[in-house]
Design a protein around this nucleic acid. Structure first.
Lengths: 335, 335
DNA sequence: AAACATTTCGAAACCGGTTTCGATTTGACT
DNA sequence: AGTCAAATCGAAACCGGTTTCGAAATGTTT
């Protein structure tokens, strides 16, 4: 491995001067700068990130913290979309991404410890379960963080406009003539709560009574199976809903399966609307009508905010991104 | 930040001894070991990974190199599945994962340079385009690598049994009575070529002539759209196939869309079988019959092999994992 | 030519660890 | 008490950079 000392020896300058060249110090004459650059080039010099981080206390690394109960991990389109968007802007700004898990080197340790050991400059947190004590520990630390789909006074946050999206969904069903509108919730996650709130708010605004039998809490893992189970319960209601607004697309897919295996049709008998617009739903039959949240943009925004904090920006920010109704085939209008 | 020097000062021992405690050296008495451990614990000591890496030349970091033409990135179920499986075993062995891109710190640089700068211990490569010069440069380096869906003499590789899977697919269609079996290929990727080879081999083995009009190369990006385009071309053939074997599930989904928009039915008019078994296809109507490859297991295996190499194992290994026919609804038996 | 300002450079300390090898202490055995 | 082996510890060099601050060289002004 070529070091600045090798370059110093060859060029006759000191390691100090060599270092200065790579760090754009002003007190290096153009001539020596050129000479050092050239020999560095031809010797194939590459800086050692560890050595640099050791002195500067900057690793140019961002920790990615995600963990979700369904076990799908990175396979989940929401996570994957956000991370992809996050990666785009963070790498363009010179940061690399590193996964942070709860244990390191075989030994158990907390997220916070892992972050400190690795010396990450910041962390992006995508973690539905906001009761995790290790997560809370991280929140109280001084490490720059950005949280997705969370609320916080101490860290920056970014999320979709879940309220508005839910209201739009319900209103859309209302416009189609539906009055018996059920809701499959997403458990006690931030997004799930906001969407439930939006649902209730919209129902109230439209003067529609909320039938308690018509709001079911799916489990917080947002899986297809959890949607199926919730829908089966919904199908036991004394009066069947004509439409159901599911808190996530997976839940909606599960609901459609349950409806169908009951011998009913979507949207013939029951209309279904989801939330997310994950890629697969446009290929379903019927293609799912849903509220699209732009996970890629969420990731972009999160990276912008985190890097802002890392690079000295003080205030904690929060951003809410708009969502959009995507009309496809799973909701029908009734007389 | 607490360092071993702090601990040394408090306990009265030298930094050397403190370091030895954490590295399980034998020449430390149980008494001092205990004392050092305790004060380290209560002072909240955490090791500095950068400092450690600087001396030991081991970063306990594995680079993840992936890049795929469709731009879906980590969203693609194949990548996500492999990475998830890879992450599981590598973190359990003490390694963290870091994404490696072509540029770092705003400046363009090759994969290899990026790896060297970051000092990763090894790299897992998931890269369909094996002509990328930067990829080739990495192949020629001495950095431990494991390649997915590639062939190589110099690096370890792991892949599914694409040949056997394709043969199984064709034979299955044959058993259902199909004789006009078309193929939508996956371009000039390793997997695509093997699957085409399997298709041709099976057709020959079954005594079926291969109609040149019936084998179309989809583009190498394995997208739904590319499958749709390929199928549209297939539908121009002078004699329509009764079944089509697509080299990937996305291609199969696209094919189904094309067939349907032509007014034909799947599997009524044309049967479709895919390859991959990505999660969504079981929710389609009809649910897609396909060859399942176990991406999670591929990731596990890849991690095992890479870590073996990193930790001193010499030989380059290669592993081929079995695939499995998953029968669902998209293929029908004819008379 | 002297006085001063500006450039250009490098010595040295530091970041937080690891590892070699020799010194010292302790224990075992005559 | 003397000898020898084993156990325990630490000084020092090193990993590859960054940064401060003073010195030397050069240029400018009078």
């Amino acid at each position: 491995m070529i070091t600045i000392y090798d370059i110093a020896k060859i060029t006759g300058f000191s390691p100090t001067t060599v270092s200065k060249v790579f760090n754009d110090y002003a007190d290096v004459s153009p001539k020596t700068r050129r000479k050092i650059m050239e020999t560095a080039e031809q010797m194939g010099y590459l800086p050692n990130a560890h050595a640099r981080s050791l002195t500067t206390k900057r690793s140019w690394t961002i920790g990615v913290l995600f963990n979700e109960p369904s076990g799908a991990g990175i396979l989940h389109p929401y996570f994957a979309g956000v991370i992809e968007g996050f990666k785009k802007v963070s790498t363009s700004r010179g940061y690399d991404l590193m996964f942070i898990s709860k244990d390191i080197g075989g030994k158990k340790s907390s997220y916070l410890e892992h972050c400190k050991i690795r010396g990450v400059d910041g962390v992006v947190v995508i973690l539905p379960d906001f009761t995790d004590p290790y997560f809370l520990e991280l929140l109280e630390s001084s490490i720059p963080c950005v949280l997705l789909d969370q609320e916080s006074d101490t860290k920056s946050t970014v999320y979709s406009d879940n309220m508005a999206g839910s209201i739009r969904a319900v209103e859309y069903l209302y416009e189609l003539g539906h009055r018996q509108i059920a809701h499959i919730g997403g458990g006690n996650t931030f997004a799930g709560e906001k969407r439930l709130e939006g649902y209730l708010h919209a129902m109230k605004g439209l003067g529609l009574p909320v039938n308690p039998e018509h709001v079911i809490q799916g489990s917080y893992d947002y899986t297809v199976d959890s949607g199926r189970v919730a829908m089966e319960e919904l199908l036991q209601a004394s009066v069947l809903p004509s439409a159901v607004f599911a808190s996530g697309d997976n839940l909606a897919v599960g609901a459609m399966m349950a409806i169908r295996s009951r011998g009913l049709k979507v949207p013939g008998d029951i209309s279904v609307i989801g939330f997310d617009d994950i890629e697969m739903v446009k290929f379903l039959t019927p293609a799912l009508t849903t509220i699209r949240q732009d996970t890629y943009a969420l990731g972009n925004k999160a990276a912008d905010m985190l890097i802002y904090t890392i690079e000295g920006g003080e205030e904690v920010q929060s951003a809410m991104l708009p969502v959009e109704l995507v009309i496809r085939e799973s909701c029908r209008s009734i007389e």
